[in-house]
Simulated scan of single mutants.
Amino acid sequence: MSTPQPAFGRPRGEAADLSLAPKPADLSEEHVPHLATGEIGPTGRPMRHVPEPSLLAGHGPAKVLAMCNQKGGVGKTTSTINLGAALAEYGRRVLLVDFDPQGALSVGLGVQPHHLDRTIYNVIMERSATIEETVLRTCVEDMDLLPSNIDLSAAEVQLVSEVGREHTLQRALRPVLDHYDYILIDCQPSLGLLTVNALAAADGMIIPLECEFFSLRGVALLIDTIEKVRERLNPRLEISGILATMYDPRTLHSREVMARVVEAFGDIVYDTVINRTVRFPETTVAGEPITRWAPRSGGAKAYRALAREVIAR
């Protein structure tokens, strides 16, 4: 396994000067009939046409998206890695933020968290640690990582007595906002202070939702937390989309849960659905996103489709 390299200071090519992607209004409900392709997707509704993303004339400021669900095992980390890699394939500069003390995002990209001298914990808790010195390159060009390890678990206790504790992550990310197009935050499976920090720093959030009944029930609590954060800390926070994961079209249960998700949340549910596959555990062992490990697989194609939807919105 190669030694992680600092991300900042490496040369980057300039993208062509082409038009930007469509505005969010282009995907509003009133536009859906014009965008429908006629093909019925796994969500049970017509697939919406999403154009191929245009190249950018420049980069930044970043749109910050929190990958959040208080239920564990729903595909947050897998989706963060693979969505980030797919966005990078489309010419976007991406920073992945591992904001979980378990460090699963870092491990999934081939980094051994317990070997690191600096992590996001140092950035948010020590004035002498800068984010530029802590961010690492990944195996994907134009996708960087702000790593984490078990030290971050102490931050939740230490931040309690801090002034403006809910905005600590937002302040930490501020110096690099102009360097990236997207910052994806992988949240821990809880609704504690670290997750509140992620929501306070985010422009939007993506909710990975396992196609299983108990996962659906837990979303109500998450929505309540989002409303409180929006009211008290971050008025710009919105649900960018709900991503159905671990979908198995062969089971009636998965199809029924999918129907209920679409009925409850409507157009904010992405057309892209992530199916169950043995490929994802393989990529974790390999320390690579599925777009590199198995670029022609169904999982890789799904995350590229998701990236197109994210850019279009």
Rank of each mutant, 00 (worst) to 15 (best):
M258C: 05
L199K: 01
A200L: 08
N197L: 09
L199S: 09
Q188H: 14
L221I: 10
S240R: 05
T277I: 13
V278Y: 11
I274P: 01
L221Q: 15
L233H: 15
E227T: 13
D186F: 04
R230E: 07
M246L: 15
A201G: 11
T195Y: 06
I223M: 15
A198L: 10
L194F: 09
G218M: 09
E212G: 14
V219G: 07
Q188F: 08
Y182S: 00
E212S: 15
I185M: 13
T195S: 13
C211E: 02
L243H: 02
C187Q: 09
I206D: 00
T245V: 11
I223W: 09
R232Y: 14
I226G: 01
A244M: 15
I183D: 00
E212W: 10
D186S: 07
E263Y: 05
T195C: 11
F214M: 13
I268P: 04
T251M: 08
L184A: 06
E256V: 12
V229E: 03
G266C: 01
P249V: 08
D186I: 02
Y182D: 00
I183H: 00
L194C: 08
A244R: 10
L199F: 09
T195E: 08
A200I: 10
A264G: 02
S254Q: 06
Y182Q: 00
H253Y: 05
I274G: 02
A201R: 03
L199G: 11
V269E: 04
S254F: 08
V273T: 15
V257H: 01
R276W: 12
V229N: 04
R250M: 08
L233K: 12
V229F: 12
P189C: 11
G204W: 03
E210N: 14
G218E: 06
A220H: 07
G192W: 11
L193P: 06
C187R: 08
I183S: 01
Q188I: 11
S215P: 02
K228C: 02
T245R: 05
G192H: 12
P235R: 06
P249D: 14
Y182N: 00
N234T: 11
I206N: 02
K228Q: 12
I268E: 08
L252V: 15
M258D: 06
G241W: 04
F213C: 06
V269H: 05
R232K: 14
E238M: 09
S215H: 01
P189T: 10
T272D: 04
V262D: 00
R260P: 00
N275A: 14
L237F: 07
R250E: 10
D186L: 07
E263P: 00
D224I: 05
F265A: 07
D203H: 12
L194R: 01
A259E: 11
S215E: 02
M258E: 01
I185Y: 09
V278W: 08
P235V: 04
I207Y: 11
L222D: 03
T245M: 12
A259V: 05
I185T: 09
I242G: 06
M205K: 03
L191V: 14
A198S: 15
Y270G: 03
I239W: 02
